[in-house]
């Protein structure tokens, strides 16, 4: 079974601090990591390969430094890695990203399953998985928490939704997005680290992918950020005073007064 895992390199923390005086972002000294949800996707890909044979190819669209994330993926069990990088791809929103990824997946051609993390921790949109599946015109299942089995051109998975969990059967090739309940990612092995060090990671550019210039990067992105601002915290609260008992009495009185209880 040939598996493609899509991953993204993201800042290692979502705690972007804001300088209260200048109201600007402070992002010094944040290191980049593999998006945590994508780490589950990679682990699941490697486990499926161990179960059914085949190979795992990781792809990542990003700047040249994203190669570090791909190398790490090889140390974690991926067989091959491809960086999808071109200045023309920069500034892509989810639609342009999905288009570019789908071109790369089509170029790889021989695949049964594409695995993506449910969402990234920096963008938080959860749109690239489903949009890529649609552009490939293949089966799609989101929020996968367990792969039950793969056989005879079908994959059976468990899926977590708000109301409970579903068991779904999909035809291959398929794209699934995974949630963190699916597995516990392994640590890199010594052999993996050695392999990662010597791995040759090709970069596929717009030319190799034969992408339509109107559909990639900023030009191919219908959405655009027009304003960025700090959330307003306007609530003026009251810290209750007195002994714990007095505070509770006063709280209950206030809540009853406003007919909240």
């Amino acid at each position: 079974m040939n598996i493609i895992v899509c991953l993204k390199q993201v800042p290692g923390t979502t705690k972007v601090n804001i300088n209260p005086e200048t109201n600007t972002l402070m992002r010094q000294g944040i290191e980049n990591i593999i998006n945590p949800f994508d780490a589950y996707a990679l682990e699941e890909g490697v486990r499926l390969k161990e179960r059914y044979g085949g190979k795992v190819t990781v792809i990542s669209m990003g700047p040249p430094q994203a190669e570090a994330a791909l190398r790490e993926a090889i140390s974690l069990g991926a067989d091959e890695a491809i960086l999808i990088g071109d200045r023309a791809f920069a500034g892509a929103d989810t639609l342009a990203t999905s288009y570019t990824l789908s071109r790369a997946i089509k170029k790889i051609k021989d695949f049964d399953l594409v695995i993506c993390g449910r969402q990234t921790i920096d963008g938080d949109t959860a749109q690239v998985g489903p949009e890529t599946a649609e552009m490939l015109r293949i089966a799609f299942v989101s929020y996968v928490s367990k792969v039950e089995e793969v056989k005879e051109g079908l994959i059976q998975v468990h899926r977590l939704i708000e109301e409970g969990h579903e068991t779904i059967e999909a035809t291959l090739p398929a794209l699934i997005t995974v949630v963190k309940e699916i597995n516990v990612p392994r640590l890199p092995s010594l052999r993996g680290k050695a392999k990662a060090k010597s791995a040759v990671i090709p970069t596929w550019t717009a030319q190799e992918l034969e992408t339509d210039p109107a559909r990639v990067g900023l030009t191919g992105s219908p959405t655009r950020v027009v304003k960025i601002f700090s959330p307003q915290r306007t609530r003026t609260g009251e810290v209750l005073q007195g002994s714990p008992e007095e505070q509770i009495d006063s709280l209950i009185k206030k809540l009853r007064g406003s007919q909240l209880i």
Partner: peptide, 19 residues
């Protein structure tokens, strides 16, 4: 004009789809 939290909710971003 579509506003959503970005960067884990520390910052709000307003997004448009023009064309």
């Amino acid at each position: 004009l579509q506003t959503r939290p970005a960067f884990g909710g520390n910052i709000m971003a307003t997004i448009i789809c023009e064309a």
